[in-house]
Computed example of a mutant assay.
Amino acid sequence: MNKITQLFNIKYPIIQGGMIWNSGYKLASAVSNAGGLGLIGAGSMYPEVLREHIQKCKKATDKPFGVNIPMLYPNIEEIMNIVVEEGVKIVFTSAGNPKTWTSFLKEKGITVVHVVSSSVFALKAQDAGVDAVVAEGFEAGGHNGREETTTLTLIPMVREKIQIPLIAAGGIATGRGMLAAMILGADGVQVGSRFAASVESSAHNNFKETIVNTQEGGTQLTLKELAPVRLVKNKFYQDVQDLYQKCPSKEELVQLLGRARAKKGMFEGDLEEGELEIGQIAGLIHDILPVEQIIQQMIAEFEAAKKEKVTFEF
Protein backbone atom coordinates (compact mmCIF):
# COMPACT_ATOMS: atom_id res chain seq x y z
CA MET A 1 0.00 0.00 0.00
CA ASN A 2 1.20 3.53 -0.74
CA LYS A 3 2.60 5.35 2.33
CA ILE A 4 0.87 8.64 1.52
CA THR A 5 -2.59 7.22 0.82
CA GLN A 6 -2.23 5.24 4.06
CA LEU A 7 -1.04 8.24 6.11
CA PHE A 8 -3.92 10.49 5.04
CA ASN A 9 -6.54 7.81 4.29
CA ILE A 10 -7.01 9.05 0.70
CA LYS A 11 -7.42 7.30 -2.66
CA TYR A 12 -4.57 8.88 -4.68
CA PRO A 13 -1.16 10.14 -3.44
CA ILE A 14 -1.91 13.63 -4.80
CA ILE A 15 -1.83 16.60 -2.43
CA GLN A 16 -3.03 20.03 -3.49
CA GLY A 17 -0.66 22.86 -2.59
CA GLY A 18 -2.00 25.27 0.04
CA MET A 19 -1.44 28.32 -2.17
CA ILE A 20 -2.27 31.83 -1.00
CA TRP A 21 -5.29 33.42 -2.74
CA ASN A 22 -6.01 30.16 -4.62
CA SER A 23 -6.74 27.56 -1.96
CA GLY A 24 -10.07 28.28 -0.34
CA TYR A 25 -12.53 25.65 0.86
CA LYS A 26 -13.99 25.15 -2.66
CA LEU A 27 -10.65 23.99 -4.06
CA ALA A 28 -9.69 21.96 -0.99
CA SER A 29 -13.03 20.12 -0.78
CA ALA A 30 -13.06 19.45 -4.56
CA VAL A 31 -9.59 17.85 -4.40
CA SER A 32 -10.56 15.76 -1.38
CA ASN A 33 -13.84 14.68 -3.01
CA ALA A 34 -11.89 13.63 -6.14
CA GLY A 35 -9.61 11.32 -4.12
CA GLY A 36 -6.63 13.56 -3.32
CA LEU A 37 -5.85 15.60 -0.21
CA GLY A 38 -7.14 19.17 -0.35
CA LEU A 39 -5.42 21.90 1.68
CA ILE A 40 -6.85 25.23 2.75
CA GLY A 41 -4.14 27.90 2.34
CA ALA A 42 -4.11 29.82 5.64
CA GLY A 43 -1.36 32.15 4.38
CA SER A 44 -3.83 34.63 2.89
CA MET A 45 -6.54 34.39 5.56
CA TYR A 46 -7.27 36.32 8.73
CA PRO A 47 -7.93 33.91 11.63
CA GLU A 48 -11.73 34.21 11.48
CA VAL A 49 -11.74 33.81 7.69
CA LEU A 50 -9.73 30.60 8.12
CA ARG A 51 -12.26 29.33 10.68
CA GLU A 52 -15.08 30.02 8.23
CA HIS A 53 -13.28 28.14 5.42
CA ILE A 54 -12.61 25.13 7.68
CA GLN A 55 -16.29 24.99 8.68
CA LYS A 56 -17.44 25.26 5.05
CA CYS A 57 -14.93 22.60 3.97
CA LYS A 58 -16.29 20.18 6.60
CA LYS A 59 -19.76 20.65 5.09
CA ALA A 60 -18.50 20.32 1.49
CA THR A 61 -16.61 17.02 1.97
CA ASP A 62 -16.67 14.01 4.27
CA LYS A 63 -13.14 13.11 3.10
CA PRO A 64 -9.86 14.08 4.83
CA PHE A 65 -8.54 17.59 4.20
CA GLY A 66 -5.88 19.75 5.83
CA VAL A 67 -4.65 23.29 6.40
CA ASN A 68 -1.36 24.73 5.17
CA ILE A 69 0.14 27.18 7.68
CA PRO A 70 3.20 29.36 6.95
CA MET A 71 4.79 29.80 10.38
CA LEU A 72 5.88 33.39 9.69
CA TYR A 73 2.27 34.28 10.53
CA PRO A 74 1.79 37.19 12.97
CA ASN A 75 -1.31 35.47 14.45
CA ILE A 76 0.27 32.01 14.52
CA GLU A 77 -0.94 31.09 18.02
CA GLU A 78 -4.51 32.05 17.20
CA ILE A 79 -4.31 30.13 13.91
CA MET A 80 -3.05 26.97 15.63
CA ASN A 81 -5.79 27.18 18.26
CA ILE A 82 -8.47 27.55 15.56
CA VAL A 83 -7.13 24.45 13.78
CA VAL A 84 -7.38 22.48 17.05
CA GLU A 85 -10.81 23.89 18.00
CA GLU A 86 -12.24 23.05 14.56
CA GLY A 87 -10.94 19.47 14.71
CA VAL A 88 -8.61 19.68 11.69
CA LYS A 89 -6.73 16.38 11.48
CA ILE A 90 -3.91 17.30 9.05
CA VAL A 91 -1.59 20.35 9.11
CA PHE A 92 1.15 21.22 6.64
CA THR A 93 3.64 23.74 8.08
CA SER A 94 6.11 25.83 6.10
CA ALA A 95 8.44 28.86 6.33
CA GLY A 96 9.75 28.28 9.83
CA ASN A 97 11.28 25.87 12.32
CA PRO A 98 9.26 22.61 12.50
CA LYS A 99 10.24 22.16 16.17
CA THR A 100 8.14 25.19 17.18
CA TRP A 101 4.69 23.66 16.65
CA THR A 102 5.06 19.97 15.75
CA SER A 103 4.83 18.55 19.29
CA PHE A 104 1.89 20.86 20.12
CA LEU A 105 -0.04 19.58 17.08
CA LYS A 106 0.96 15.94 17.54
CA GLU A 107 -0.25 16.01 21.15
CA LYS A 108 -3.67 16.98 19.77
CA GLY A 109 -3.65 13.93 17.47
CA ILE A 110 -2.93 15.96 14.33
CA THR A 111 -0.84 14.57 11.45
CA VAL A 112 1.97 17.04 10.72
CA VAL A 113 3.84 17.54 7.44
CA HIS A 114 6.58 20.13 6.92
CA VAL A 115 7.64 21.73 3.62
CA VAL A 116 11.41 21.87 2.98
CA SER A 117 13.76 22.91 0.17
CA SER A 118 16.84 20.88 1.16
CA SER A 119 17.88 17.55 2.69
CA VAL A 120 19.34 19.45 5.69
CA PHE A 121 15.91 20.89 6.51
CA ALA A 122 14.26 17.53 5.75
CA LEU A 123 16.43 15.92 8.45
CA LYS A 124 15.55 18.70 10.90
CA ALA A 125 11.86 18.14 10.18
CA GLN A 126 12.25 14.38 10.72
CA ASP A 127 14.07 15.02 14.01
CA ALA A 128 11.26 17.37 15.05
CA GLY A 129 8.84 14.45 14.76
CA VAL A 130 6.82 15.29 11.65
CA ASP A 131 4.92 12.48 9.91
CA ALA A 132 6.15 13.33 6.40
CA VAL A 133 7.97 16.04 4.48
CA VAL A 134 7.23 17.88 1.24
CA ALA A 135 10.49 18.48 -0.63
CA GLU A 136 9.89 21.39 -2.99
CA GLY A 137 12.17 22.04 -5.94
CA PHE A 138 13.25 25.33 -7.47
CA GLU A 139 10.66 25.01 -10.28
CA ALA A 140 7.79 25.67 -7.87
CA GLY A 141 5.72 28.83 -7.86
CA GLY A 142 5.48 31.20 -4.91
CA HIS A 143 8.15 31.32 -2.20
CA ASN A 144 11.08 29.11 -2.85
CA GLY A 145 14.37 27.79 -1.46
CA ARG A 146 17.45 29.99 -1.80
CA GLU A 147 19.58 27.04 -2.90
CA GLU A 148 17.84 26.72 -6.30
CA THR A 149 17.90 22.91 -6.08
CA THR A 150 15.65 21.41 -8.75
CA THR A 151 13.09 18.69 -8.05
CA LEU A 152 15.03 16.19 -10.17
CA THR A 153 18.04 16.44 -7.85
CA LEU A 154 16.29 17.30 -4.58
CA ILE A 155 14.01 14.24 -4.34
CA PRO A 156 16.71 11.52 -4.50
CA MET A 157 18.96 13.54 -2.15
CA VAL A 158 16.20 13.86 0.45
CA ARG A 159 15.18 10.21 -0.02
CA GLU A 160 18.74 9.16 0.76
CA LYS A 161 18.66 11.02 4.09
CA ILE A 162 15.20 10.40 5.62
CA GLN A 163 13.12 7.40 6.61
CA ILE A 164 9.69 9.07 6.83
CA PRO A 165 7.30 9.43 3.84
CA LEU A 166 8.39 11.92 1.17
CA ILE A 167 6.13 14.09 -0.98
CA ALA A 168 7.64 15.72 -4.09
CA ALA A 169 6.66 19.25 -5.13
CA GLY A 170 7.78 21.70 -7.79
CA GLY A 171 7.13 21.27 -11.51
CA ILE A 172 4.58 18.45 -11.22
CA ALA A 173 1.31 18.88 -13.12
CA THR A 174 0.94 15.67 -15.10
CA GLY A 175 0.74 11.91 -14.56
CA ARG A 176 4.16 11.50 -16.17
CA GLY A 177 5.62 14.09 -13.80
CA MET A 178 4.04 12.23 -10.90
CA LEU A 179 5.53 8.91 -12.05
CA ALA A 180 8.96 10.49 -12.53
CA ALA A 181 8.92 11.93 -8.99
CA MET A 182 7.92 8.56 -7.54
CA ILE A 183 10.61 6.71 -9.50
CA LEU A 184 13.11 9.16 -7.96
CA GLY A 185 11.96 8.14 -4.49
CA ALA A 186 8.87 10.17 -3.62
CA ASP A 187 5.84 8.42 -2.08
CA GLY A 188 3.43 11.02 -3.44
CA VAL A 189 3.26 14.45 -5.05
CA GLN A 190 2.06 17.93 -4.16
CA VAL A 191 0.57 19.88 -7.05
CA GLY A 192 0.14 23.66 -7.02
CA SER A 193 0.08 25.46 -10.38
CA ARG A 194 -2.19 22.90 -12.10
CA PHE A 195 -4.82 23.36 -9.35
CA ALA A 196 -4.41 27.16 -9.42
CA ALA A 197 -5.74 26.92 -12.99
CA SER A 198 -8.84 24.98 -11.96
CA VAL A 199 -12.49 26.01 -11.96
CA GLU A 200 -12.62 25.72 -8.15
CA SER A 201 -9.49 27.79 -7.43
CA SER A 202 -10.37 31.03 -5.60
CA ALA A 203 -7.96 33.02 -7.79
CA HIS A 204 -9.25 35.73 -10.13
CA ASN A 205 -10.06 34.53 -13.64
CA ASN A 206 -7.50 37.01 -15.05
CA PHE A 207 -4.80 35.15 -13.13
CA LYS A 208 -6.07 31.74 -14.27
CA GLU A 209 -5.96 32.92 -17.89
CA THR A 210 -2.41 34.22 -17.30
CA ILE A 211 -1.31 30.77 -16.10
CA VAL A 212 -2.70 29.19 -19.28
CA ASN A 213 -0.95 31.82 -21.43
CA THR A 214 2.42 31.70 -19.65
CA GLN A 215 5.04 30.18 -21.93
CA GLU A 216 8.28 28.36 -21.16
CA GLY A 217 10.65 30.91 -19.59
CA GLY A 218 7.76 33.18 -18.59
CA THR A 219 8.56 33.09 -14.86
CA GLN A 220 11.61 34.03 -12.80
CA LEU A 221 12.77 33.70 -9.19
CA THR A 222 13.43 37.14 -7.69
CA LEU A 223 13.47 39.22 -4.47
CA LYS A 224 15.97 36.87 -2.80
CA GLU A 225 16.93 39.59 -0.31
CA LEU A 226 13.38 39.50 1.13
CA ALA A 227 12.03 36.00 0.46
CA PRO A 228 12.73 34.29 -2.88
CA VAL A 229 9.56 34.20 -4.98
CA ARG A 230 8.84 32.91 -8.49
CA LEU A 231 6.82 35.43 -10.48
CA VAL A 232 5.26 35.81 -13.91
CA LYS A 233 7.21 38.42 -15.89
CA ASN A 234 4.61 41.20 -15.84
CA LYS A 235 4.97 44.98 -15.27
CA PHE A 236 5.54 44.59 -11.51
CA TYR A 237 8.27 42.01 -12.15
CA GLN A 238 9.89 44.42 -14.62
CA ASP A 239 9.70 47.23 -12.04
CA VAL A 240 11.63 44.98 -9.63
CA GLN A 241 14.30 44.29 -12.29
CA ASP A 242 14.59 48.00 -13.09
CA LEU A 243 15.13 48.74 -9.41
CA TYR A 244 17.86 46.07 -9.24
CA GLN A 245 19.80 48.02 -11.86
CA LYS A 246 20.25 50.73 -9.20
CA CYS A 247 21.66 48.31 -6.58
CA PRO A 248 18.76 48.93 -4.17
CA SER A 249 18.84 48.55 -0.41
CA LYS A 250 16.57 45.98 1.24
CA GLU A 251 14.38 48.89 2.41
CA GLU A 252 13.91 50.11 -1.17
CA LEU A 253 12.82 46.63 -2.27
CA VAL A 254 10.36 46.44 0.64
CA GLN A 255 8.99 49.86 -0.35
CA LEU A 256 8.44 48.77 -3.97
CA LEU A 257 6.78 45.52 -2.88
CA GLY A 258 4.43 47.40 -0.56
CA ARG A 259 1.47 45.62 0.99
CA ALA A 260 -1.03 43.12 -0.42
CA ARG A 261 0.78 42.92 -3.78
CA ALA A 262 -0.02 39.19 -4.15
CA LYS A 263 -3.68 39.77 -3.30
CA LYS A 264 -3.84 42.54 -5.92
CA GLY A 265 -2.52 40.18 -8.60
CA MET A 266 -3.88 36.72 -7.90
CA PHE A 267 -7.13 37.51 -6.09
CA GLU A 268 -8.15 40.88 -7.56
CA GLY A 269 -6.81 40.21 -11.05
CA ASP A 270 -4.51 43.22 -11.53
CA LEU A 271 -2.11 41.76 -14.11
CA GLU A 272 0.07 44.88 -14.29
CA GLU A 273 0.75 45.89 -10.69
CA GLY A 274 0.02 42.57 -8.97
CA GLU A 275 2.44 39.88 -7.84
CA LEU A 276 1.61 36.79 -9.93
CA GLU A 277 3.14 33.67 -8.35
CA ILE A 278 3.21 30.53 -10.47
CA GLY A 279 5.55 27.62 -11.20
CA GLN A 280 7.67 26.95 -14.29
CA ILE A 281 5.27 24.13 -15.20
CA ALA A 282 2.72 26.80 -16.25
CA GLY A 283 4.19 26.39 -19.75
CA LEU A 284 2.58 22.93 -19.81
CA ILE A 285 -0.85 24.05 -18.54
CA HIS A 286 -3.17 24.87 -21.44
CA ASP A 287 -6.67 24.97 -19.97
CA ILE A 288 -8.78 25.74 -16.90
CA LEU A 289 -10.49 22.52 -15.85
CA PRO A 290 -12.63 21.20 -12.99
CA VAL A 291 -10.54 19.56 -10.25
CA GLU A 292 -12.09 16.11 -10.78
CA GLN A 293 -11.04 16.15 -14.44
CA ILE A 294 -7.49 17.26 -13.56
CA ILE A 295 -7.06 14.39 -11.10
CA GLN A 296 -8.60 11.80 -13.44
CA GLN A 297 -6.31 12.93 -16.27
CA MET A 298 -3.25 12.72 -14.01
CA ILE A 299 -4.10 9.23 -12.81
CA ALA A 300 -4.92 7.96 -16.33
CA GLU A 301 -1.60 9.34 -17.64
CA PHE A 302 0.28 7.93 -14.64
CA GLU A 303 -1.16 4.44 -15.22
CA ALA A 304 -0.56 4.57 -18.99
CA ALA A 305 3.05 5.72 -18.52
CA LYS A 306 3.66 2.89 -16.03
CA LYS A 307 2.59 0.33 -18.64
CA GLU A 308 4.69 1.68 -21.49
CA LYS A 309 7.38 -0.71 -22.66
CA VAL A 310 10.22 1.57 -23.64
CA THR A 311 13.43 0.09 -25.01
CA PHE A 312 16.53 2.25 -24.97
CA GLU A 313 19.24 1.38 -27.45
CA PHE A 314 22.87 2.19 -26.69
Rank of each mutant, 00 (worst) to 15 (best):
H143R: 11
R146P: 06
R146F: 07
F92T: 14
G109Y: 02
Q126D: 07
L105F: 05
A95V: 10
A122L: 08
V88R: 08
G141F: 11
A95N: 04
V116I: 10
I79Y: 05
L154G: 09
G137T: 08
Y73I: 10
V83T: 12
L152F: 11
A135W: 06
G87I: 08
V113I: 15
G129Y: 07
K106M: 10
Q126F: 04
A132P: 05
G142T: 13
V130K: 02
M80Q: 07
V83G: 04
K89Q: 11
E78T: 12
T93Y: 00
V130N: 02
Q126L: 02
M80F: 06
G145M: 04
A135P: 08
P165H: 01
E86N: 07
A140K: 11
V130E: 01
V83H: 00
H114K: 08
S117Q: 06
T149V: 15
V113W: 02
F104R: 12
W101G: 04
A125E: 06
Q163D: 14
Y73Q: 12
E139D: 13
E85W: 01
H143D: 14
P70T: 11
Q126W: 03
D127K: 15
V83Y: 00
E148D: 15
V158Y: 02
G145H: 05
I69P: 01
P156L: 07
V112H: 01
E160M: 09
P70Y: 01
E86W: 02
V130W: 02
V130I: 12
A132E: 12
G142Y: 05
V84F: 00
W101C: 09
I162M: 03
F121D: 15
W101T: 12
Q126T: 09
S117Y: 02
P98S: 03
L123M: 14
L152S: 12
F92P: 02
V130L: 01
M157L: 15
A122F: 03
H143V: 15
N144S: 09
R159D: 10
F104V: 11
P98D: 02
A95C: 10
V115S: 09
V134W: 02
G96M: 01
V116A: 06
G141A: 14
E78F: 00
V84W: 00
K161G: 08
P165A: 04
R159V: 13
K161E: 13
L105S: 10
V67Q: 05
P156R: 06
A135T: 13
F138R: 10
R159C: 13
Q163C: 08
F138T: 12
T100I: 13
Q126P: 03
I110G: 06
F121A: 14
I82L: 05
N75Y: 04
V112E: 01
L152P: 03
V83F: 00
T150S: 15
K124T: 12
H114P: 08
Y73N: 15
G96F: 00
A122V: 07
K161F: 05
A135I: 09
H114T: 09
L166R: 05
E160F: 04
H143Q: 13
A132D: 09
P74G: 04
E148I: 14
K124Q: 14
D131H: 07
L154I: 11
V112G: 03
V88M: 06
I76D: 01
E139H: 10
F121T: 15
I162E: 00
S103Q: 14
G129Q: 07
E147L: 11
T153V: 15
E78I: 12
V134L: 11
G137M: 01
A122E: 08
V67T: 07
